[in-house]
Amino acid sequence: MQLPNPETLLADITAKIAEKINPNSALVGIHSGGVWLMRRVLETLKADIPFGTLDAALYRDDYAARGLKTNLKPSDIAFDVTDKHIILIDDIFYTGRTTRAAMNELFDYGRPASITLVVLINRGGAQLPITPNITGAEILLQADQNLQLSQDTKGKLHLEIEQNNA
């Protein structure tokens, strides 16, 4: 399958985010891919926007079955979430469960005025009534396929599909 260039998609979602930004906006990236994207968006926008990072692992619904992942990253939201228009950024949108967990965590920081979900790719397969507001591309994948965003040492983004054998 020919995958789109993630750098092009990033430029695309950055332009759409720029239209949404208002004085009360804040960016929040979900670890790890969403944080890379958020940093790139901030570089491009060159605006003074509060930002933070989330690792929603402590709010996931599969903890009882699968335990805590080992490479946990601390969430870091130093601004006051209350009354902010949060632009929540993730790389791949799949079941919607990560978004659910991230929203629950955000609400433990405060009461945002709104949350806008931005994703680089929606791969289909939502299991919850959650849909991204801004999407770079929609690529429908099978359940046994795993779409992975990576960042090389120069900060360039790459997409690849792996086959899950499990």
């Binding site: 690792d55 402590l58 903890y63 805590l68 601390p74 870091d76 629950n104 433990d108 920081y109």
Partner: peptide
């Protein structure tokens, strides 16, 4: 290291308004 790295995450939880996670 797994315990110490995980603890870093929980230091942040204690600095929030709601110092609780649902695990």
């Amino acid at each position: 290291n797994q315990i110490l790295d995980t603890a870093e995450t929980f230091v942040g939880v204690a600095e929030r308004d709601i110092k609780k996670v649902p695990l």
